[in-house]
Design a protein around this nucleic acid. Structure first.
Lengths: 149, 149
DNA sequence: CTTTCTGCAAACGATTTGCAGCAGC
DNA sequence: GCTGCTGCAAATCGTTTGCAGAAAG
């Protein structure tokens, strides 16, 4: 369970959030954060287990639930069989997803400033009209990845 | 299994698509389309069954799968336990979703022209940079609905 | 030392599938 | 009438949960 030096700060933040919520800092949890930080896209449980050798399935699910409740991890559901997990956006960067309709691959893309502005403007208008108070948004582009095109 | 006159055209289109794919036009399928057309938001299987009395669960799933493969229905997955189904956008109108993070309710909202333009521009840029060819997109605003706010 | 984690195996629940009878066309 | 659709009950499979032993603090 090696911890690359460059990620020290991330792990410190995660540890702080865990302790604040009365949760323990365990090797499994540190590894999970590490795995997600290294990936440039949301991972499924099988993908996570392939990168975190020996982690029991139930522990993976339980720890990801804990990490989510502490605001470190975000769970997303696309259309594949498995849910996907990624680090919370305040630990990484705001981004959107490219989803391949053929092979199911998911990739991160940074959000353009113009698009963000349009989304916020739309959300403001919607709140005025409907009373819906937007907390965050999700933009997915569904299409064919380079390999499937 | 009454069919409101105003929906005749919709049903004709659906029937045509079914026949083109060698599928039969049955009462269950007509009812399903009717139920989805009446709702102004994507419905879960239990919600659909509540509106289509006597439809077996397995038939609901099977027929929605057929309707999806024929391009009449679109299946979406939010974060609730059940998937949701709506009519394909070329049979209704392009729209986005408001998803309540508290109660899980999903509501349709028309897409603003400005936002659409921004999304398309972003998709073009992404295709130039990464080769990803966007087919369609999804914009979800996640927040608190009026009732939960 | 106490309380929380962990892995294993069993339980759950949404969705899928096998089968015998009914209905499109 | 032939072929595909329907409901029922059983199977699947991702995810959750109970429990006894191990580890965090």
């Amino acid at each position: 369970m090696a911890r690359p030096p460059a990620r020290t700060e991330l792990h410190a933040t995660v540890a702080a959030r865990l302790r604040t919520d009365g949760q323990r800092v365990t090797a499994s949890r540190t590894t999970l954060v590490d795995v997600l930080a290294r990936a440039r896209r949301p991972l499924t449980i099988p993908e996570i287990q392939a990168r975190a050798s020996g982690l029991a399935t139930s522990s993976a699910y339980r720890n990801l639930l804990v990490l989510e409740s502490v605001g470190v991890v975000h769970r997303i559901v696309t259309n594949g069989d498995h849910a996907r997990y990624e680090l919370a956006e305040d630990l990484t960067e705001h981004h959107h997803h490219l989803i391949c309709s053929q092979c199911g691959a998911v990739e991160d893309v940074p959000a353009s400033a113009r698009l963000e502005q349009s989304v916020h403007k739309a959300a403001d208008e919607i709140e005025r009209h409907t009373g819906f108070r937007t907390q965050h948004h999700r933009v997915d582009l569904v299409g064919l990845c380079k390999r499937c095109a």
